[in-house]
Design a protein around this nucleic acid. Sequence first.
DNA 1: TCGTGATTTGACCAACTGGTCAAACCAACG
DNA 2: CGTTGGTTTGACCAGTTGGTCAAATCACGA
Lengths: 200, 200
Amino acid sequence: MTKPPTRIQKRNRAAILSAGLDVFSQFGFRGSTLDQIADAAGLSKPNLLYYFPSKEAIHTVLLERLLETWLDPLKALDGKGDPVKEIMAYAQRKLALSRDYPRESRLFANEILQGAPRIEAILQTDLKALVDAKGAIIQGWSDAGRIARVDPHHLIFSIWAFTQHYADFDVQVRAVLGDKAPYDGAAVFLDMLYKKLLTP
Amino acid sequence: MTKPPTRIQKRNRAAILSAGLDVFSQFGFRGSTLDQIADAAGLSKPNLLYYFPSKEAIHTVLLERLLETWLDPLKALDGKGDPVKEIMAYAQRKLALSRDYPRESRLFANEILQGAPRIEAILQTDLKALVDAKGAIIQGWSDAGRIARVDPHHLIFSIWAFTQHYADFDVQVRAVLGDKAPYDGAAVFLDMLYKKLLTP
DNA sequence: TCGTGATTTGACCAACTGGTCAAACCAACG
DNA sequence: CGTTGGTTTGACCAGTTGGTCAAATCACGA
């Protein structure tokens, strides 16, 4: 029998989560402070703690939401579709995720960099299971000669690495590219890279 | 007329830098504490501050050392060598760097993730100049038809992304691979990926 | 308009932070 | 052995941290 959230609750909770995403994704959990988050959300610190019981709680909610969005594209990889098309679509979806949700990407990166203390268990169970399952599909395509012989795990790693690079290393990418837009060129390159790799 | 460092100075400075690398690479600058570093180095906090004037100073020394090692492999890319061989060698050198110096890779990743406040200027000048120069070489090879048509910048990004992924996302890689060793498979995959991409 | 529950705040706390300092300690060389 | 300069430490400090609490304020339905 939980009460439905009021208008103000919705607004403030959303503001806090967005502010938390800003701050945590830049400084990591330990490097972020409640004052920073409260400021960014336009609230006082005690007021913030009226909506979330602790710093940890904000971080946890953000991580949980993140993991869903993050694993969705891979789940959508369909074993009954056309192999090359499926893998290319996955890679492009992942790249779009980096473009549209860079803060989420950096939050994830920060968590992993710090040794994934809060999600290591999920990585070893849910993520591993998902990757193994989709990896098996790719392995099947590979064995059947429908794509080139590749190690599915490293193929997936390479897609993760390349696409997330544009969000996580944004500053570096922009420093090197100057004022050129990163994502158009990245999409073209991504397309060529995997089309060539996967062609038997 | 600076005096030569004593035996003890050498030992302790090295211990502090190694400890600082451990801690900073995991928690970032703001998330790391002098107590952590002092503990890891086996010294008391005041003792640590006898060798380095501040937390910032330790971090700065580490970043400076890092940047040298980090840009070296790209500098070695030789415009007079065989195009495919040169690029492949660069990629493999970079992968070896991730395998042998994962802490340095994570220190760099942390710095970039946090917006590169301490090295943004260097990225925009030194790094950009280096990448532009080597990019021009690759562009030349591409124009001459000696390798396939690729955007040199994104090619370099993809090499960075893929190789650093194994150091920076180590926890995730190991969670997914189970007990399989990451780097052997990565090297094989890397080889195939770029050989196929670069072949005209 | 009033009452009630939701919301906000200022004052506060203990633990931790980066950093200082004088005093104690120790290594080594004459 | 003594002394001199490098080394280590405990006590300390001011500012920051995550978090609490009672009191004040506000929104809104009756």
